[in-house]
Design a protein around this nucleic acid. Sequence first.
DNA 1: TTGTAAGCGTTATCAG
DNA 2: CTGATAACGCTTACAA
Lengths: 347, 347
Amino acid sequence: MSVTIKDVARRAGVSVATVSRALNRSGPVREETRRRIEQVAQALNYAPNSAARSLISRRTGMFGVLLPDLYGEFFSELIRGIDGAAQASGHHLLLSSSHDAASEIEAALRGMRGRVDGLIVMAPKVDTPVLRSILPRGVPVVLLNSPAADSALDSLTVDNFGGAREVVSHLLWHGHERVAFLKGPERNHDAEERLRGYRAALRDAGVPWREELEIPGDFTGEAGYAGAAALLRLDPRPTAIFAANDAMAFGALSALRDAGVAVPEEMALAGFDDVSSARYTIPPLTTAHVPISELGERAVAMLAESVGAGSSRPRRRETLAATMVVRRSCGCDGAGGGIRAPRNEGR
Amino acid sequence: MSVTIKDVARRAGVSVATVSRALNRSGPVREETRRRIEQVAQALNYAPNSAARSLISRRTGMFGVLLPDLYGEFFSELIRGIDGAAQASGHHLLLSSSHDAASEIEAALRGMRGRVDGLIVMAPKVDTPVLRSILPRGVPVVLLNSPAADSALDSLTVDNFGGAREVVSHLLWHGHERVAFLKGPERNHDAEERLRGYRAALRDAGVPWREELEIPGDFTGEAGYAGAAALLRLDPRPTAIFAANDAMAFGALSALRDAGVAVPEEMALAGFDDVSSARYTIPPLTTAHVPISELGERAVAMLAESVGAGSSRPRRRETLAATMVVRRSCGCDGAGGGIRAPRNEGR
DNA sequence: TTGTAAGCGTTATCAG
DNA sequence: CTGATAACGCTTACAA
């Protein structure tokens, strides 16, 4: 059915070997012959069969991407970064998501075996040793935001600890003494690091830690809403809330609005991620900016290096900074949207 | 390097043919033999080489997904729906995005040739005839939100026209006489249909159309901001704004807040998409709910059908309703989270 | 500079 | 039931 290299060879009056050499520039071919072959290929609309090609070359031209979820702006932005870089490096993306449990990841991994030249894996809920045991050997892997204390694998992380510490320090600098924390999911590495950062900032400032100010959550708006509502019932109330991510901060904002509590006057608020809608809330949200698409781009870059270098290359571990973006929800007079505010064009 | 079917055959003391039959249950194999083969395969951690397999079977087990962009909640949710359904039907997803121009799509399509069993294509900016000319023949395709008046291809659409008409009718029902429209990108089919819906609602209600109330835009928050700002300079001002999508509505909301214009008291506002954060704005946004993930799921379902049925199956064209969600930005006293309004007049 | 032929790992078609 | 063996479409020594 489809046009193969044989058809091109026949029509061009040469052997398939010559066609292959001509089209891939992988060997000597007389200039004239090559031109003719290329013309024929074009005319026949020939496209090499990638299965056959990767059967022999052992390259598929694809990178596998394993994510725990796709929901929300974080993943949207992450994939965007990955996709851009992958396209630039001539790779396709094999996407698979909605994996939390190790068993699901293992299944997805099995499905990708042999189909990809490299893997980008984000599995915040799986312990590194477990993860390593189910990861295929022989295929380059870049771990995203995973503990990976053990460094037999490339990994790429956001400085959750530093970002959280910076934000909470800022809240404390505003004079707040009871700063609450809306926690992320249990056993989620990002969440744990942000918690560590929160506690470190408290310690740095000599502010006493209070158990009742750490509220469990799971990164959803609903949890943020419930958490803030619970905090409002405390006596004395906290005067500032740091949410482990923006989605929870949004939920908290809703709860505060519903309760008639003014932000930032009666309650300061800050989030983490700097999701794009963070600047559109009222008041605009102070948060830690995570360079999400850059995270994706770097992951692909590392993978591309690994693929080229084989297993000889030493493993890398990179950390991207999460820098605070000051807007108004913390009590600062952020002039209309913070550092990354939309321009008021055509005024 | 990798363990092949030959290794399994040798270790099990049978021929490769038998191994193939046993593992695929594609032919008669003695029960005992099969068990032994399966054990060996397991022990050797054998996984069939998918390139070799698809070389002969002409099936890749992958669906290609071509999107214009990945930015924002819409695509996040869409991919989520697609991914879920694809996983359920045992297919992997080959993702490619950031394609607007026909030439880019063509390139991406060429890259996917032979790699996928089916294609989900969303190309709102490309005319159908052009699109058809660059779409590969022989591979099932489902077009998402494309004009596709010509029905030689499966297609799946959201009722942009009906949804927009419903929302604008609702705004008019509130008594507004000057309802402005923040348009989407030129030559974008969704945008055009929503514009048509806007105009139809005006006509239905006998409200005069005014050129100055149709503001150009491009689906971004920035455009919404600029558009609303421009509308505020009009005299007389409109009293309601319908944005072609939620992102622009959010931008408009920002502009109105910056200008000190109360929503909905001084200016009613509505959007389109019902992106998840639409209920967290202040006031919560009245909008048309697009069943985004359902759109993705249906697309995969249609594709799976096509793949099974070959080219004999008649082409399908489905339309999913976009139903209005009444919240507070339109002036209704929407009770909190936004109950979906029953469909009303004139459809 | 070109052609011949040997694979790559599977599945499918035959005989046995 | 099982085993040779011929494809599948391509790349790559090795010859010519």
